[in-house]
Computed example of a mutant assay.
Amino acid sequence: MSAAVCPGSYDPFTLGHRFVVERTAARFDRVIVAVVVNPNKQGMFSVDERIALIERDCADLPNVSVRSWTGLLVDLVHDEDATTIVKGLRAETDFAYEAPMAQMNRELSGAETLFMLTDPRYAHVSSSLVKEVAKLGGEAAPYLSPAIHQALMDKINGVRKV
């Protein structure tokens, strides 16, 4: 059974992320979306909120699971009995950033990294940019699922969910 890990901070999970996860799910028996926890960064959404949003957004993909991870990515790959790390690329700057990590991950564990180009409609989209646009009153809806867009707007507007 083949398994792949799609790591990221996903703060928030964009349609570009969804595109990569969906294509990965079509190619592997199991896909683990890993919400990577960086203790040095404070996200807009908590890790639990990100997991819940991604689970809802990917509910139609039965071979996709979502979990958090702190530590070396290769340890998660090993724990999940996966062989492949899948990373979405938007532009050549993403490749320059990701290539050394992919080489280190292969040296540490033998896990290969598959780079997948995102849909050109989302090549300019990042979670940070989407949050900035939304905070400044711009339209972020074209880059997010409706539920995630609503969650983002609720966060920005200080709406508390019960």
Score class of each variant (00 low, 15 high):
12 P>T: 10
54 I>E: 02
11 D>P: 00
110 G>H: 10
55 E>A: 12
42 Q>F: 06
79 D>E: 15
27 R>Q: 15
117 L>G: 09
105 N>D: 14
72 L>A: 14
48 D>C: 02
124 H>K: 03
32 I>M: 03
102 A>C: 01
30 R>W: 05
59 A>E: 10
74 V>S: 05
113 T>C: 07
123 A>I: 03
128 S>H: 09
14 T>R: 06
120 P>K: 00
23 R>Q: 14
76 L>R: 10
14 T>Y: 02
38 N>E: 08
12 P>Q: 04
127 S>V: 02
80 E>V: 13
68 S>Q: 11
127 S>C: 05
105 N>Y: 06
74 V>N: 00
31 V>E: 08
92 E>T: 15
35 V>W: 01
26 A>S: 14
136 L>G: 03
98 E>A: 08
119 D>E: 06
132 E>G: 07
64 V>T: 06
53 L>Q: 11
33 V>W: 01
33 V>H: 01
120 P>N: 04
45 F>H: 02
50 R>P: 04
10 Y>W: 12
74 V>C: 09
133 V>F: 01
93 T>I: 09
55 E>G: 04
75 D>K: 07
137 G>R: 04
68 S>N: 11
130 V>S: 03
75 D>N: 15
28 F>S: 05
122 Y>L: 07
66 V>D: 02
9 S>C: 06
132 E>A: 11
111 A>E: 10
58 C>R: 00
34 A>T: 09
135 K>Q: 14
82 A>W: 04
101 M>D: 10
74 V>R: 00
40 N>W: 06
37 V>N: 02
50 R>V: 05
128 S>V: 10
135 K>T: 12
103 Q>C: 04
87 K>H: 08
137 G>Q: 08
120 P>C: 06
123 A>R: 09
136 L>E: 12
103 Q>S: 11
132 E>R: 12
10 Y>N: 05
22 E>N: 07
92 E>Q: 11
128 S>Y: 07
43 G>F: 03
91 A>K: 04
94 D>W: 06
111 A>Q: 08
123 A>H: 09
15 L>Y: 07
62 P>N: 11
92 E>V: 15
36 V>F: 05
68 S>P: 02
30 R>C: 08
62 P>D: 12
52 A>R: 13
30 R>S: 13
103 Q>P: 00
50 R>H: 11
30 R>D: 15
77 V>M: 01
67 R>A: 11
90 R>D: 12
84 T>H: 11
34 A>P: 01
103 Q>M: 14
85 I>M: 01
74 V>A: 04
24 T>M: 05
64 V>S: 02
74 V>Y: 03
112 E>R: 07
43 G>R: 03
42 Q>C: 09
123 A>F: 04
109 S>V: 10
33 V>L: 02
92 E>Y: 10
92 E>F: 14
55 E>T: 14
19 F>C: 14
129 L>Y: 01
125 V>C: 05
41 K>R: 14
113 T>K: 00
75 D>Q: 13
81 D>K: 00
10 Y>D: 07
68 S>D: 15
63 N>A: 07
18 R>D: 15
17 H>K: 07
116 M>C: 07
130 V>T: 07
57 D>I: 01
51 I>K: 08
33 V>I: 13
46 S>A: 10
44 M>P: 01
42 Q>H: 13
33 V>T: 08
96 A>C: 03
108 L>Q: 09
128 S>T: 15
10 Y>C: 04
